[in-house]
């Protein structure tokens, strides 16, 4: 046995058998479909749960969902959100965000703000292509965030469903509510 082992070892050394074995694996891969894809031309399919850029959402009737409660600001681990809220003087008891900033250069995309939001005004989208030459444009303000929200509304909704933030559309309509109207009155104000 020993001699046989010795012989094998000698042959291994002389014939570079391990190289042949490895080459075999490598050559086999020549017949595989390539794993890579050509990015700007081909795009990945992104899962619903994907945590991309944040957007602000509106109710179906176009009203801003955000009530400026600042909970996202409190929840944010990187302190990149700044909400400035105020009373909407035209509607007593109506609080809304006059300004809403997300410093996307600081954002860590953890999704805590979405989890925290008591009205599901925030959602993450599948948008990830917003690289820029100017860092200033990465300070997303309220307008930009609503634009993202409007453009990627479907993705945003899917995100909320995927992360159990909302049930499906139909069900969520029953418990979705507007401040300051109590629940149950929402149906009327929706239509």
């Amino acid at each position: 046995m020993d001699t046989q082992k010795q012989t094998t070892r000698l042959l291994d050394a002389v014939l570079f058998r391990e190289i042949w074995k490895a080459m075999k694996v490598t050559f086999k891969h020549m017949f595989h479909r390539p794993m890579t894809f050509q990015y700007p031309r081909e795009k990945r399919t992104i899962p619903d749960a994907h945590r991309g850029a944040l957007g602000l959402l509106r109710y179906d009737n176009g009203q801003e969902r955000c009530v400026g409660c600042d909970l996202c600001e409190a929840a944010c681990p990187s302190r990149c959100i700044k909400v400035i809220s105020e009373e909407d003087k035209s509607l007593p008891l109506q609080r809304y965000a006059t300004e809403f900033y997300i410093d996307i250069t600081k954002c860590v995309f953890c999704g805590y703000c979405v989890e925290a939001c008591p009205v599901n005004a925030l959602a993450m989208t599948k948008m990830y292509e917003y690289s820029t030459h100017d860092k200033r444009t990465l300070m997303f303000d309220k307008q930009r965030l609503y634009e993202i929200g409007d453009q990627h509304l479907e993705d945003a909704k899917k995100y909320l469903y995927a992360h159990n933030q909302e049930q499906d559309d139909e069900e969520s309509r029953t418990y979705r509510y507007h401040f300051p109207q109590p629940i149950g009155k929402t149906e009327a104000s929706d239509s």
Binding site: V67, G68, C69, L71, L93, Q94, R95, P118, V119, Y177, F179, P180, P182, I183
Partner: peptide, 11 residues
């Protein structure tokens, strides 16, 4: 009690 912690200043 109303469900308005989000808009309440005392929250």
């Amino acid at each position: 009690h109303p469900l308005d912690c989000p808009v309440c200043d005392a929250d």
